[in-house]
Amino acid sequence: MSYTGMPINDDLLVKYLVGEATPAEAEAIQNWLLADAANQQEYENFKLIWDQSQQIAGTRNVDEDAAFIRLQNRMNKEVASAPVRVRKMKPRYWVGIAASVLLVCTVAWLTISHYYDNRAIAFVKIESHDKTRVAALPDGSEVTLNSHSTLIYPERFTGTIRPVTMLGEAFFKVSPDKIKPFIIKVNGVTVRVVGTSFNVKSRGGKTQVIVETGIVNVSEKSKNINLNPGEKVLVTKKDGLQAKESIRGRLYNYYATHELVCDQTPLHELVASLNEVYGAHISIGNKAIEGLPITTVFKDQALDDVLLVIKETFKVKVEKGKKGIVLR
């Protein structure tokens, strides 16, 4: 089902969220949501950032009108010749739709929190849509965005930190700078590093951080934890920041490396990654084989080839049906 109605943009979505959309606009948005699962995901991401920005703003004693005026004075320049999408703040009839909702969240954190001085700062917004994208940040750090992900950062890192905001999933290679930490805000979670490589995935209300090199500090509310290479942590709305765990192999950043690296990796973890990477529906029909370890590397291989390796390694049956694939 394709959508052919009125264009759906950030301002229209905000009007819908605050209950000020006309009946025709509301109907158009509902038809847009039903037309494609990717539209539903985009809306959920959009609503998440909107809710976060409202929560952040609600915890501070801030004159929002004055903050908006200060922000307008700052957002007075475009990023010239940059190979990314740049959105510049423009006046609207209320602060809530003063710009992209993602920028509202960035304003709440960067501007209202006074991390920046009064010099004009432009914000860069990168959206990966249905493919991966690689971005070079002002400090030389490199970020690979998975599909349907968003990253926002200042055109220049001029303050005492290097702050970015993100949605979705991204792999970061952060340039070292011990006196100016790199800080990511995502889904109520703060990730703080000085120079390292790691993966951040935030979807469906869950945020997962996996460290490849260096040390990463992850905090949520009053809790925080340090992760070392080969460790991961999960943060959920229900349980908050959970205990860290060790990982076996590198299954988390296939979108960036095109490799699934298994190192005594339990079969059930590999299956979960295969379902995500290939959009498959694989299940394990025998609990006795769920934890069996596998050590190998799959690089840009067809799913049937991967399943053949699993079949031969564990001597299991691979049953294909209308509802998916079952390993027994």
Score class of each variant (00 low, 15 high):
281 H>R: 12
306 V>P: 03
180 K>R: 14
66 A>R: 14
155 E>V: 07
125 K>V: 13
100 S>N: 15
229 P>S: 07
38 A>R: 05
304 D>C: 03
113 S>H: 02
243 A>K: 15
29 I>E: 02
291 G>Q: 10
224 N>R: 14
178 K>I: 14
36 D>Q: 08
42 E>A: 14
228 N>K: 09
199 N>P: 03
56 I>G: 10
150 T>I: 09
116 Y>W: 06
2 S>W: 03
261 V>D: 09
260 L>D: 04
44 E>A: 14
54 Q>M: 08
262 C>D: 09
164 V>T: 13
290 E>L: 10
228 N>R: 14
153 Y>C: 06
120 A>P: 11
238 K>G: 02
12 L>K: 08
78 E>A: 11
128 S>V: 07
223 K>E: 15
96 G>H: 10
188 G>T: 03
104 V>G: 13
39 N>G: 05
238 K>P: 02
282 I>S: 05
186 V>K: 04
262 C>Y: 00
61 N>L: 00
39 N>D: 12
161 I>N: 12
206 K>I: 13
49 I>R: 05
308 L>W: 10
266 P>F: 03
118 N>D: 13
115 Y>W: 00
9 N>L: 12
162 R>D: 06
182 F>S: 06
274 L>W: 02
79 V>M: 15
45 N>D: 14
33 L>V: 07
300 D>N: 15
302 A>K: 10
207 T>H: 07
139 D>F: 09
32 W>S: 05
112 I>W: 07
249 G>M: 11
72 Q>I: 11
322 K>T: 00
119 R>E: 15
66 A>Q: 11
225 I>T: 02
325 I>Q: 00
10 D>A: 15
157 F>S: 10
211 V>R: 03
30 Q>H: 10
7 P>H: 10
126 I>R: 11
305 D>E: 15
197 S>A: 14
317 K>N: 15
148 H>I: 10
42 E>L: 08
214 G>I: 02
303 L>C: 10
140 G>I: 04
292 L>D: 01
212 E>Q: 15
199 N>Y: 08
89 M>E: 12
164 V>S: 06
53 S>C: 06
92 R>V: 00
229 P>H: 11
39 N>S: 02
157 F>Q: 02
84 V>K: 02
244 K>L: 14
267 L>P: 03
197 S>T: 00
240 G>N: 11
81 S>N: 04
248 R>K: 13
29 I>D: 06
5 G>I: 03
245 E>G: 01
166 M>E: 12
125 K>G: 09
84 V>E: 00
211 V>W: 09
108 A>K: 08
15 K>L: 14
208 Q>C: 13
